[in-house]
């Protein structure tokens, strides 16, 4: 936990510096009779972020976080739960490019319900079918927001003909 505090503060300090550097592409100074330049707002705010990170780092070295002792930032079980969530989401979002939203949604549902939750197949399949159908009617028909479909696009042409 103690080490995580330092690592996070250092990473965020680097983020702050890169934000400052990026903001400086626009004028960051004071333009007479007008006020701050276009980059000033984000530049000085990022500078403030950097100061906060330095503040945390200085406190770290002065022993502010010693009370954490040896408590773990994440135990093995937490790492497992976190990675399952984060990786499955990353894979799902990545899969949208290939199999579209309507392919990726059932994948995520089946993965969580069947392989982690050990629910029955009928329940899993029911949700894996119902969810994309409801999503289609809500987003594509009611809201007319087209969700990405990847390679599955041609499969939807008949549906477009019927509903749109």
């Amino acid at each position: 936990m103690r080490r995580a505090e330092l690592v996070m503060a250092v990473i965020m300090a680097i983020v702050s510096i890169s934000l400052m550097w990026k903001s400086a592409e626009l004028p960051i100074g004071w333009i007479p009779r007008e006020g701050p330049g276009g980059g000033a707002f984000p530049f000085w705010l990022s500078a403030g972020m950097l100061v906060c990170c330095i503040w945390i780092i200085v406190r770290w070295f002065r022993g502010y976080f010693d009370s954490y002792g040896d408590t773990l930032y994440m135990d093995k079980e937490t790492v497992r739960v976190f990675l399952t969530g984060a990786v499955s989401l990353t894979v799902t979002i990545g899969a949208i490019y290939l199999v579209g939203v309507y392919g990726a949604i059932p994948m995520l549902l089946i993965f969580y319900m069947k392989f982690i939750g050990r629910h029955t197949w009928p329940l899993t399949i029911a949700l894996a079918v119902a969810f994309p159908v409801v999503t289609f009617f809500f987003f594509e028909i009611a809201l007319t927001i087209t969700l990405p479909k990847g390679l599955t696009e041609p499969l939807f042409y008949p549906l477009y003909d019927i509903f749109l």
Binding site: I93, I96, V101, L109, Y112, M113, G117, L127, T135, F139
Partner: peptide
């Protein structure tokens, strides 16, 4: 195990919309 994927999916389509 049911709630989490359902909310994740709502987040994805809600973030895209």
């Amino acid at each position: 195990t049911i709630l989490a994927p359902v909310i994740f999916i709502l987040c994805i389509v809600g973030g895209y919309a």
